[in-house]
Design a protein around this nucleic acid. Structure first.
Lengths: 196, 196
DNA sequence: ATAATTGCATACGGATCGTATGTCAATTAA
DNA sequence: TTAATTGACATACGATCCGTATGCAATTAT
């Protein structure tokens, strides 16, 4: 019980750095987050950061991977408890809009992430959401519920629409009312994918 | 004819700065564009920049306003030469995807712009595209072509979907094939807004 | 003709990032 | 048990970049 604490300490500092960075990125944004500041807030220095994550971009990637895993898990449980596949898919998509309302997700995943790391589709770890949505659509297509369209194409259209809808809602004067309008339009739009 | 050259020179330096910045922002991106570098490339210094645009963000705003005006004009002419309103709207939306394929638009308008200046809907000058799309949808709704949904909500969903579709296409191995899949799915999606 | 304004350049300070180096504790080897 | 080595993290340094403050020269106004 003397050689465990060592590796635990390491994991702990890594976790502390990740949490501090996530907090900073999520509030002031990537560009204005000073590595000196938030490492000091975690009781560490930039030395630890460069040791664990390589550089500032590497740190952002790690933060994104963490958030993406959380998002994916939430979406899976939501779509899992629906009565049928299509309803599960609609629920999942609407939930995606609602998640995109969270400031941290908006800032890190939807704004700074793409700006700093490029197209989200190319991210190594952070396409769990898209790929799970693609699989859902492929199943629905096999079931004969949705029309003959490319599942991945539809998944990307939907996630893009969700993102913009979420930004619109988040910045509106009356988020409640705006959210209702957006979700209504969104559901109508989804029905475009159904067989007629 | 001695007091014209003066104001012409001023407008010319402003234009040169704008063009140089647009070039730099569009290629290396906002964060990695050094003001010293691209002002020097224009035969000027940062002094001129701060005089005309206040700061780096102000310069980005000016570049965005310019690009947005061009985009809006292109979209208007496209939708204008369609046989009917709905077709014009579809053409315009597809054209939006195609414009989002251009690297400069993708980088400046769709990635760095939102990351640096925040929600595009709040931009002072650069919502011409959204608002024109909203007007189109409102007319279509009045004509009885589209269902009872909020025009602005639909416009935002569509532009978001276009953006993501464009990024997907631009980064794919086979842009031609991907584009076909995306546009097909996109047209199906748009039909979700029609009355049934 | 002199004074005031303005377009633009130069000079400076502050902040930040990445690297290179150092140190100390913990693990491993002898 | 002790010596050597690895590795986690801190410190020191240089380079870059932004924003402001200042300076100059040319034009316009008086």
């Amino acid at each position: 019980m003397a050689h465990r604490p060592r590796s635990e300490m390491i994991a702990e500092t890594r976790a502390k750095l990740l949490a501090a960075a996530r907090q900073a990125f999520g509030t002031v944004g990537y560009a204005d987050a000073s590595m000196d500041d938030f490492t000091a807030a975690a009781g560490l220095t930039r030395g630890a950061l460069y040791h664990h994550f390589g550089d500032k971009k590497g740190l952002l990637q790690a933060v994104i991977a963490e958030i993406d895993a959380e998002m994916n898990e939430r979406l899976c449980t939501i779509s899992g408890r629906a009565p049928n596949r299509w309803q599960g898919f609609v629920d999942e998509s609407v939930a995606y809009i609602e998640m995109a309302l969270e400031p941290e997700i908006q800032r890190i995943m939807l704004r700074d992430g793409p700006a700093v790391l490029g197209d989200p589709a190319q991210w190594p770890n952070a396409n769990a959401c898209i790929s799970s949505m693609t699989r859902s659509l492929a199943r629905l297509k096999a079931d004969g519920a949705v029309a003959d369209i490319d599942p991945e194409a539809a998944a990307r259209l939907i996630s893009g629409a969700s993102l913009y809808a979420a930004q619109w809602i988040a910045n509106s004067d009356d988020p409640e009312a705006t959210s209702k309008k957006a979700v209504a339009a969104f559901k109508a739009m989804l029905e475009g994918f159904l067989v007629r």
